[in-house]
């Protein structure tokens, strides 16, 4: 099973803070996660829950002036088999890791593509930098990569500029760029959120196929629970900067043990079930209220103000992660009753 595979990414106690006008806010507050080779871990949660800050922290892409890792470790097993704590590396060392050991894909393909260089130049660049390949062989590799990510007529496409491609094609091109150096870890932050649903299906299918073929570890950030079920082996549900539930997707979605996960699943209209609900006069189970502000977090469980299972005890301390089963954990003191 996946658990037996080698761990590629191991994050422990990650805490990331931002300097804001009123002082300091903790956007990510003690995150533990690990991803093994050949495994996809989905990080899911609503906007502002800390998903992107977590992935930016792992890649060490926070702008120094405003945000910084305040605690924790981010161990990465590099291609040479050596394990390094990325938190302690210099920017120069990080540059040799990004694009080589770690491939990255973002929501907006244009944020990773430079409008003034051809697609071919941009895909072959990491191959030249990290592999020391010459121009010609790097360009051949770029053509072969474009072909692998399903861009037809790759030899012609390498000569085109990003604006000449559709949104879906651009995302394919950034995937080719991320895979250019055969990374051991692929980090994808909402890679299909800006795409239409038929194009999203293509890209999810492609990522799954490439991951299987290459045995990469993938950290996949999304707010879409359907996408999680589609692509991930394991899931970590984030709320207000913490993981509140984690485990194999099948266990967490079939048998959620945190009221927030339960609420998220219930508030989603489900294709095919909506007609029945409408006819039965049933309403969607909305979660009342809204996400607390980072400036003003409740003292105990952050979900307490919105939780229908809340009791006095929930306000006393931040609940730890409880073991529901060996691989399934919930940050709810009442997990056995919910």
């Amino acid at each position: 099973m996946q658990q037996a595979a080698e761990t590629i990414l191991d994050v422990k106690g990650l805490r990331t803070v931002f300097r804001v006008r009123a002082g300091e806010v903790t956007a990510v507050n003690g995150i533990d996660l690990s991803v093994a080779a050949g495994e996809t871990l989905a990080l899911v949660g609503e906007s502002g829950s800390g998903k992107s800050v977590t992935s930016l922290s792992v890649m060490r892409l926070l702008t120094r002036k405003i945000g910084a890792i305040a605690a924790g470790s981010v161990h990465l097993k590099r291609k040479d088999g050596k394990v390094r704590d990325l938190v302690s590396l210099s920017e120069q060392e990080m540059r040799s890791i990004r694009g080589d050991d770690i491939g990255m894909i973002f929501q907006e393909p244009m944020s990773s593509l430079n409008p003034v260089y051809t697609i071919g130049d941009q895909i072959s660049e990491p191959i030249r930098i990290h592999r020391g390949a010459d121009r010609k062989s790097a360009m051949d590799a770029a053509i072969s990569l474009l072909d692998q990510v399903g861009i037809p007529d790759a030899a012609r496409r390498v000569k085109q500029y990003p604006h000449e491609l559709s949104g879906g094609m651009r995302q394919r091109a950034t995937i080719a760029m991320a895979l250019a150096c055969d990374p051991t870890l692929l980090i994808a932050d909402e890679p299909t959120t800006a795409l239409d649903v038929t194009i999203q299906a293509q890209i999810l299918d492609l990522l799954q196929k490439l991951q299987r073929e290459r045995g990469m570890a993938m950290l996949f950030v999304t707010h879409n629970l359907g996408v999680v079920a589609e692509i991930a082996h394991r899931v970590a549900v984030m709320y207000a900067g913490r993981i509140v539930e984690t485990g194999p997707v099948v266990d967490v979605f079939r048998n959620p043990k945190h009221p927030y996960t339960m609420g998220l699943l219930a508030s989603m209209p489900k294709l095919g079930d909506a007609t029945r609900m409408k006819q039965a006069g049933e309403k969607l189970a909305a979660i009342p209220g809204m996400v607390p502000s980072l400036m003003n977090m409740p003292a105990g469980c952050a979900f307490e103000p919105r939780c229908k299972f809340a009791t006095e005890d929930c306000r006393k301390a931040v609940p730890p992660l409880f073991d529901v089963s060996p691989h399934h954990k919930s940050r709810c003191i009442h997990w056995q009753e919910v």
Binding site: V197, T198, Q200, A201, Q202, L204, D205, N224, L225, G226, V227, V228, A229, E230, V249, V250, F253, R254, L265, M268, K270, L271
Partner: peptide, 16 residues
């Protein structure tokens, strides 16, 4: 093409 959160949904999706 719509991804379903139901882990039991069979996924023989048709990809355009």
């Amino acid at each position: 093409a719509i991804p379903s959160p139901d882990p039991d949904a069979h996924r023989n999706r048709q990809i355009l």
